[in-house]
Simulated assay, not measured.
Amino acid sequence: MTVESGLRLMAGLMVLISVALTRFVSPWWMLFTVFIALNLLQSAFTNWCPAMSILRAIGLKDASCGAPPVTQGR
């Protein structure tokens, strides 16, 4: 698994967990969903996310590591 796919997995799980907590515990858990969305938005512009650092620290590799270069088709 790469950092990029791990990040999508983590974000998806966190959204599902926050929605369940909102439904069954308290509507205030929706703020966690908003935090996740804002973090995804800022990472789209900065290409950096704190979760990516954590995933790299536990041993996941970037998708570009060892992959052949991408070339444009004709």
Rank of each mutant, 00 (worst) to 15 (best):
F35D: 02
T33Y: 06
M14C: 14
A67I: 01
T71G: 06
T22D: 05
R56K: 12
T22Y: 09
Q42H: 07
M14D: 13
A20V: 06
N47I: 00
L7C: 04
V34N: 01
P27W: 10
R56Q: 12
V19K: 07
P27Y: 08
Q72G: 13
M1C: 07
I36H: 06
S5K: 05
P69T: 15
R56L: 04
S26L: 01
V70I: 15
Q72N: 14
L55S: 02
F24V: 12
A11R: 02
P27E: 09
A37R: 00
G66M: 07
W29V: 01
L7I: 03
R74W: 12
S53F: 02
L40C: 13
A63Q: 06
S43V: 00
F45V: 10
A57Q: 05
L41P: 00
A67P: 00
V34E: 03
A63S: 15
D62K: 04
A11V: 07
L16D: 10
I58G: 03
I17P: 00
I54Q: 04
W29F: 11
V19S: 09
T22H: 08
L55W: 02
C65N: 09
M10D: 08
D62F: 01
G12R: 04
S5Q: 08
L60N: 10
P27T: 06
T22C: 08
S5D: 09
F35K: 00
P69I: 15
T71Q: 13
S64A: 10
M14E: 14
R23V: 10
L38K: 00
I58E: 04
S43K: 00
A44V: 04
G66K: 04
R74Q: 13
L41S: 07
P69V: 15
S18R: 03
C65Q: 14
L7R: 01
F35Y: 05
S26P: 00
E4F: 02
A11M: 08
L13D: 06
M52Q: 08
A67N: 02
P27N: 04
G59T: 13
L41A: 14
R8K: 12
M1F: 06
F45L: 13
L7M: 03
M30I: 13
G73P: 02
V70G: 08
F45T: 10
L13M: 10
S43A: 15
P50S: 07
V34W: 05
V3E: 03
A11L: 09
W28M: 04
L40W: 12
G66N: 02
K61F: 07
R8F: 04
T71Y: 15
T22R: 04
T46E: 05
V19I: 15
I17L: 15
F24P: 00
A37V: 14
F45C: 07
I17R: 11
G73C: 06
R23T: 11
L16W: 02
T46H: 04
A37F: 13
T33A: 15
W29H: 07
R23G: 07
F35I: 05
S43L: 00
M1G: 08
G73W: 05
V15F: 09
W48N: 03
F24I: 11
W48K: 10
A44Y: 07
T71R: 14
L60H: 11
L40K: 03
T2G: 01
F45N: 07
M10Y: 11
C49W: 01
S18L: 07
V3L: 02
I58M: 13
K61P: 01
G6I: 07
G12H: 05
Q42L: 12
N39T: 03
